[in-house]
Design a protein around this nucleic acid. Sequence first.
DNA 1: CCGCATCCAAAATGATACTG
DNA 2: CAGTATCATTTTGGATGCGG
Lengths: 145, 145
Amino acid sequence: MQKCRSPKDNLLVPSTKFRVCPIHITIDILGKKWTLLVLRDIAILNNNRFNQIRRSLPGLTPRVLTLRLKELEEAGLIRAIVIRESPRVVEWALTEKGNDIMPILMSILAFGAKWYADEIFEDHRPRTLEEIYPSYHEAKDRISS
Amino acid sequence: MQKCRSPKDNLLVPSTKFRVCPIHITIDILGKKWTLLVLRDIAILNNNRFNQIRRSLPGLTPRVLTLRLKELEEAGLIRAIVIRESPRVVEWALTEKGNDIMPILMSILAFGAKWYADEIFEDHRPRTLEEIYPSYHEAKDRISS
DNA sequence: CCGCATCCAAAATGATACTG
DNA sequence: CAGTATCATTTTGGATGCGG
């Protein structure tokens, strides 16, 4: 993606030209299988231990979880807090950069809560992010105003 | 993910219990390789023809593109507008549901524009979404207020 | 040229067992 | 507990062809 221009003029054109697409570059980091779900565990569910994440994500094998954690650490999104050596115990935490994936997780959550309410909520009623996490939105308002 | 509660109380707890995780269910749809980039092409770049998308995404083969387009159509995110039969020409467009992935794409873009400015912008300066797409934000303000 | 389909190779992921 | 090692399976990529 060299340019974000469209032949028709009714579309989004960025004010500055991209050398590479920001979406593409981000998806290279976050787009692999399990990556966003691992981040969900650490960022939202507070599952920050190896086997906690495994239990919360059936199908995710230790091999792949190790790969994903290494990649995320390498990318600077998470860091390992060593609680104890031998037998090693680590706790995974978001970095400042990792914290900035929260809006991504929240927009994904909002999409699900709107379009898959039938599976998600007992009463099958779609919900907005504001309804689900009032506190999260108050925090955002405090920051942006 | 049965519960979105954490042992510590400093974390996000949804106001309503989830039967399944909204993030998980959404990622089941959007999380496969190339899917979000195909949506980026249709939603933002206005590349809505088969070979347009192919040209814009080197490495994506016709086989996988066909698969992804079928999956997205099946999921109700895109629909085919038949321009001409025999030889068949179709244009892919977002449905109403598909339009709701825009916030996801935009949050991904915002993350990239903040943390990968070095590769993205000639001047290496991070940018906010508001700076990149002023018109998109004006539209959002009009809607929410 | 456009929208695929087919065949095979390579890469990513899964299952299971095992170790410090 | 937090991973490795090994091997099987699934998913994706590359090349090519084909009817319209």
